[in-house]
Amino acid sequence: MNIFRLSGDMTHLASVLVLLVKIHTIKSCAGVSLKTQELYALVFATRYLDIFTSYISLYNTTMKLIFLGSSFSIVWYMRHHKIVRRSYDKDQDTFRHYFLILPCFLLALLLNEKFTFKEVMWAFSLYLEAVAILPQLVLLQRTRNIDNLTGQYVFLLGAYRALYILNWIYRYLTEPHFVHWITWISGLVQTLLYADFFYYYFQSWKNNQKLHLPA
């Protein structure tokens, strides 16, 4: 565990908390893409298949349970909670998530560390995580007014990815044999997807204006 990895995990945790605050306290999920949330639930379900079989640390198991629990409960709230679901921008959130799931699955069948069920699922979860933010970014671009919590949610997710890249550089330099091409390339692609959002986020922050993405 290094400072980049820990900050990355904490930023990731913070992003989930921001979303839960929005849903629990404000009882609104306006501007949040259900498609992205469903993809994240699938990402965690397929990546953490080993949660009960290979123990790494209490920290690791706890975080996995938090990410699994939070992603599924967010999906449940957006789909079934009688107040929250009314604020869901269903007509705007039209990204077809199956178009992301299928190519990622085929890629995982071709590119994996070992051709076993667990390893293929693990590779699939990494490829899917890399593109899971796309429905959310599309929704943000369509939404006229992006509220602060939604903007912060996406910003924190992007920051988490950027910190993970620093973590990999640190681990590569300090740990012998730390080479994980699948993780690195999909992680890099994922971070690049945030570049455009980051640009407009910092612009609005610098000029003290409301975040607005150009169409």
């Binding site: 990731h12 790494i56 640390s57 690791n60 044999h177």
Partner: peptide, 10 residues
């Protein structure tokens, strides 16, 4: 080079 180590990242 693939290391058969448990995946310790989230």
């Amino acid at each position: 080079c693939y290391q058969d180590t448990p995946k310790d990242e989230l």
